[in-house]
Design a protein around this nucleic acid. Sequence first.
DNA 1: TTGTTTGATTATCAAATGATAACTAAAGAG
DNA 2: CTCTTTAGTTATCATTTGATAATCAAACAA
Lengths: 145, 145
Amino acid sequence: MDRKALFDQAVAFITSVHQVTYEMTKDFALGDITPVQYGILEYIAVAQPVTLSQVSDCKHISMPNTSRELKKLTDRGLCEKFDAPDDKRKQYIRLSPDGQAFMNAAFGHMEGQFRMRLATATEEQLEQLSAAMGVLQASLFSEKS
Amino acid sequence: MDRKALFDQAVAFITSVHQVTYEMTKDFALGDITPVQYGILEYIAVAQPVTLSQVSDCKHISMPNTSRELKKLTDRGLCEKFDAPDDKRKQYIRLSPDGQAFMNAAFGHMEGQFRMRLATATEEQLEQLSAAMGVLQASLFSEKS
DNA sequence: TTGTTTGATTATCAAATGATAACTAAAGAG
DNA sequence: CTCTTTAGTTATCATTTGATAATCAAACAA
């Protein structure tokens, strides 16, 4: 198989994923939440409870900046910090009820877009889709390295 | 098929794609080119020649800001503007030789990462991969809407 | 115990990005 | 020929984001 052609296909594919992700999320009102803050909330939503260091590592934001943004978010009542029982240096973070509601709305919006895109798909096509994502995530887009 | 589960899988998948894309590109030296500027160059590379308006539309940057960033890039000798023969209002943009060299290096780096990830894959797996990307791009990540 | 590492905070600064208004010139519509 | 729209530019401003230094307390290692 032609690896160069496969690479070109992968570039086009990645571009499409980014493009479609943008289109599926752009018309959700962030209010006064900045894109970076939204990314943090999204990460907390799927991984909570998390420490500040985890947010810093996973979202590639320096600790001082992570601390700053997270302070803003807690001040706005979207998430809560609580001490780790084992290590008094650590702080865990989770979404507050307001934060949960916000993220539920965000994910709900995304899911709506998602369903629209797949509205006309047959059962068989959905199975194919799931299988295709499985294949890709097991190989090209695995995060083990 | 459970659509909610499929949605969750899609969210995880999209996250992985973004994550891996970041990891494949992060250690390429941008020099004094900013991320937004890099995105513009990448777009020009695959779509050249393009007008300013096209860049603005596709990269979701307002015309004034597109004009500003493109001016910086042409000043640095990475791309060139030339008048459209048919419409004197339009300006086409293409990469300069330096810009081409830069983007060749960038794509070369990405391709290296890409090959590393697929180094142990069998011929059959590569075929599967290509097919999987085809399936996804034809359904979930099509950009027709 | 002393020194070092880790987790987090605050303060400050610089740079990148986004937004808006005002403007020019060419093209197109009536 | 006007009027409007399109393509692009310049200038300016606010905000967001990234980067760095200095600090603190707890944990850990010698």
